[in-house]
């Protein structure tokens, strides 16, 4: 009997604290949107974050894209060759990159590369009481710290995903056409005839935009809500990666089922 109430109490505590966190996250998100006008007025703040979130993620995104393209070209060729349709390699590489791998892998890498940095930075600001100091100086920390990072993430992720897909197509081209010797004309023409601007490319951009909002918002919330200790910041950083990766995969399933089923 005692054990049962213990379990129930734990369950209740868990439910209450998760609802509380959800509400806190929603309030922070709304506050971020509310203060985003101010951060756009001082665009230099957003630019600085664009540099540290977007530009510094360029190398990892582009190199990963290239290698994913290499692998797609190699694996796709090996499978398609069995059915004598290696000309369709362009379609396979382009569609899988533009629809799925581009947005999803970019979002996962972005969570690891930039999301953790955001969480750790804000968590450390909180631990060293820089956020409280801002409030003392009547500077709203959401407007000064959170909103610029949010918009920098939302702006840079679709661009990074586009670069990832571009590098991937290029990688598939290098392996498929240059190294293996698939016909160049049919590689490009088959790709162009079956990749639709609206259906595939625009939906991919929408996907990466949604992922950007999710990953950046989670990273900001974890940082802003972290325990102001060394351990708390490290826990928050871990949670950022875990939660945003799961969220990206979950949202990807939802979006795919909405977009690509007629």
């Amino acid at each position: 009997m005692n054990a049962l109430t213990g379990v129930l109490r734990y369950l209740g505590n868990y439910a209450i604290s998760s609802v509380w966190r959800l509400g806190y996250g929603a309030r922070l998100f709304l506050l971020t949107l509310l203060y985003s006008g101010e951060s756009f007025k001082r665009f230099q703040l957003v630019l600085k974050e664009l540099y540290s979130i977007g530009v510094l993620s360029l190398v990892i995104i582009m190199v990963s894209g290239l290698f994913v393209g290499f692998v797609l070209g190699l694996q796709g060729y090996n499978t398609l060759e069995k059915y004598g349709s290696e000309q369709a390699l362009g379609i396979l590489v382009a569609l899988s990159l533009v629809r799925e791998l581009g947005p999803v892998v970019t979002a996962l890498l972005f969570a690891g590369r930039a999301g953790t940095a955001i969480t750790a930075e804000i968590g450390l600001m909180k631990a060293t009481e820089q956020l409280s100091a801002m409030e003392m100086m009547a500077v709203e920390p959401v407007a000064r710290v959170v909103a610029p990072r949010f918009w920098a993430g939302v702006i840079s992720m679709p661009l990074l995903a586009a670069l990832f897909s571009t590098m991937g197509v290029f990688g598939g081209y290098i392996v498929g056409v240059v190294l293996i010797g698939v016909d160049e004309g049919s590689f490009w023409s088959q790709m162009q005839s079956s990749v639709d601007f609206h259906e595939d490319i625009l939906n991919g951009v929408i996907k990466s935009f949604v992922f950007a909002v999710a990953v950046t918002a989670i990273a900001l919330l974890e940082g802003y809500d972290s325990k102001p200790t060394a351990e708390g910041v490290s826990r928050a950083t871990t949670r950022t990666v875990v939660t945003s990766s799961l969220m990206v995969l979950f949202l990807d399933f939802i979006l795919t089922s909405l977009m690509f089923t007629s």
């Binding site: 630019l47 600085k48 664009l50 540099y51 977007g54 530009v55 360029l58 382009a94 533009v98 702006i155 840079s156 679709p158 661009l159 990074l160 586009a162 670069l163 897909s165 571009t166 197509v169 490009w188 790709m191 162009q192 005839s193 990749v195 639709d196 601007f197 595939d200 490319i201 951009v205």
Partner: peptide
């Protein structure tokens, strides 16, 4: 920093353009 952000944004849009023109139809 401004220069690098400019390069990044331009490269991103160039990638999008490449995808819609060369990859897409």
């Amino acid at each position: 920093m401004d220069l690098w952000v400019g390069v990044f944004v331009a490269a991103g849009f160039a990638g999008l353009l490449f995808l819609s023109m060369k990859v897409g139809n």
